[in-house]
């Protein structure tokens, strides 16, 4: 099945694209998509603990199952709090 992957902020910079289309096996979860993505873009792996994920524009969890045509988004930490920034 085929899903659209949306990336934002620094994750978008790492991938060099805001949207990717990827084929995933039946039974895949959001975590499956993430694992594939970090194989393709190892620099993303640092975000495993700090990011949030969304499925079809709603917050979701990594273990959430996905369906053909779904829209999966990976979201770096948001601008709140007192972060000092990641030098580029």
């Amino acid at each position: 099945m085929r899903v659209t992957v949306r990336l934002f902020a620094r994750l978008r910079d790492i991938a060099g694209a805001a949207e990717l289309v990827r084929d995933v096996p039946a039974g895949a979860t959001i975590g499956t998509v993430w694992a594939e993505l970090t194989r393709e873009f190892p620099d993303m792996a640092d975000y495993a603990k700090s990011m949030s994920v969304a499925l079809n524009a709603d917050y979701a969890r990594m273990e959430h199952a996905i369906s053909d045509g779904d829209d999966v988004a990976f979201l770096p930490p948001v601008s709140g709090g007192e972060g000092t920034g990641i030098p580029l």
Partner: peptide, 14 residues
């Protein structure tokens, strides 16, 4: 001297 993405909180509505 440069630019940075400001990264604060992990967004979790729950």
């Amino acid at each position: 001297g440069g630019d940075v993405w400001i990264e604060g909180a992990t967004a979790d509505p729950d």
